[in-house]
Amino acid sequence: MELNLDYLIKTFFLAITGIPTTLEITIVALLVATPISFFMAIYKIYNVKIIKQIITAYVSVIRGTPIVLQILIVYSLLPSLFNMAVKSMGWNWDVFSMNPIIYAYIVFSLNTIAGLSEVFRSALLTVNTGQLEAAHAIGMTTVQAYTRIVIPQALVVAMPNICNLTVNLIKGTSLAFMMTVKEITSIAKIEASFGYNYIESYIDIFLIYIIVCSITQLLFSLVEKHFRSYKSITKAS
């Protein structure tokens, strides 16, 4: 099997220019989702009935449908919806010239909110209620108890799952090309269509994702180690 090495290398460096876009989408999704998911997790635990049902339904739909469908639905719905909204408010703005990355932000944020809320919820559940009781007993307010005691402990448990979620998010952004977003996959695909060098392009994409994901996992394991440091000291022997 002949691989055009020149092309392989050239496209590799070209596709790398898509990494910032990929990371942008990932980071925006995470930043938007974190506060929202956190409050969703708390609401679910505290059992406020109507809200709990809405949240459960939302999470169930998002996690029960392929992300490609979510992308297609958003991409076929939102532009015309925005257009309608803009026209009815009399603004003179061409919705269709908007940077498609906005749609990517929306889809991946919605998706991450659902996944992250589950991660937070299960992490919070692993923290012994006795911790909260003890915090109240020494006079902390609930907010203080959460920020100083409960959340740090929950975060340690949540870290591997957050890492997983992030890696999956990064992999998910590989589908953003369907919305004409210029991230890694789309750049390489476009190059490929010039000379029919599909295999080399996809190998490049493959390698780039491995690099990005591996670095991400490395960063997370460092963060995890830092958070873990309080745990093993108490092992008596």
Binding site: S174, Y198, Y209, C213
Partner: peptide
């Protein structure tokens, strides 16, 4: 390796490769 591979990328590699 596979953990870091987006499914669509693997699909295309297999399909073309």
């Amino acid at each position: 390796t596979l953990r870091c591979t987006p499914p669509i990328v693997l699909l295309f590699i297999v399909y073309y490769g």
